[in-house]
Design a protein around this nucleic acid. Structure first.
Lengths: 159, 159
DNA sequence: TCAGTCATGTTATATCATATCAATACGAAA
DNA sequence: TTTCGTATTGATATGATATAACATGACTGA
């Protein structure tokens, strides 16, 4: 686990390779990465931050790619289902996935200062929650693991 | 960990003891469990299910305890801050806490069939997410751990 | 080319949540 | 016990998030 999101890195290269991986995924699985969807993903990936659906819509709208909420929600729905983006439940916002294709159960570190989001891997089945689920006879289908706090940069500013 | 929420139990006694514990908490900490707040908590605890703020408002309203959204949100805000209720982020809904006072970082098992919610204990600092946070220099302040799936009863109905 | 499916455009509305300000109730200190 | 400050409630309005529904257009394969 690296949390590259909180660190300086060659973000242009980071975006390029992520977009390539996303395209490869779509091709391999017969999914159509249409202009709106592609642009939506680029916008989400532009920064490692969570964007609200209406923030995304504002970007798309400024580029003439649609003006009504369903435009944004459809694009997000596609990206989330395809595993190319994730919803951050604690913020009702969305973030581009930096490991598209990895069939993962991601966990997130969310900075309340700058709204940056880092993606980590978890294995819910091995967690204590997994133990609890087994003990209760509960069948887990989806898990949400999100930690809010301060990233290294924001810790310097805030106290 | 017991997940009593998914099992048959003496729910009347369960509610009584939880309410008593909640009162004790409030007394000990100088918090005011006013009629609206108390009733809101009772309504949340009536079933081990997540209730939307407007669902709660409908109940309160039917009892003449307020008709406008802020009534429900204020009561929920109080209960959540006091640790007497929890917000289920994945549902934008609220559930009464069955262990009031325990200064806990709860995790939830959420049934998508009947919307029942069971509360489990986790220790985020010991999880792999905690490892990731430490490695990244991220300071966790709050964590959201929610697993959606099917409870034992609903597994029988739904495949 | 035609049918079927997927995607988009558009309007309307549902659902979740908070800002604001006025009025009232409560508790502590004088 | 009066007074002051704070917490709570009442009420109106609005903001923020999300989806239903239906029409139109585009691509795909028989």
């Amino acid at each position: 686990m690296s949390a590259i999101e909180f660190r300086d890195h060659d973000h242009a290269a980071c975006m390029r390779s992520t977009m390539q991986a996303a395209e490869a995924q779509c091709t391999a699985r017969g999914l159509r990465l249409t202009p709106v969807r592609r642009r939506a993903l680029e916008i989400l990936l532009a920064e490692h931050r969570a964007l609200g659906a209406y923030d995304l819509l504002a970007h798309l709208s400024a580029e003439g790619l649609g003006t009504q909420p369903p435009v944004a929600y459809r694009a997000l729905d596609f990206l989330v289902k395809a595993g190319l983006a994730h919803k951050i439940e604690a913020l009702n916002a969305y973030v581009g996935c930096v490991q598209p294709g990895a069939d993962h159960a991601p966990a997130f570190l969310i900075c309340r200062g700058c709204r940056s989001v880092a993606e980590a891997e978890t294995t819910p089945s091995q967690s204590r929650l997994g133990d609890a689920a087994r003990a209760a006879g509960f069948r887990i289908e989806r898990s949400v693991v999100e930690a809010e706090g301060l990233c290294p940069a924001c810790q310097k500013d805030d106290i």
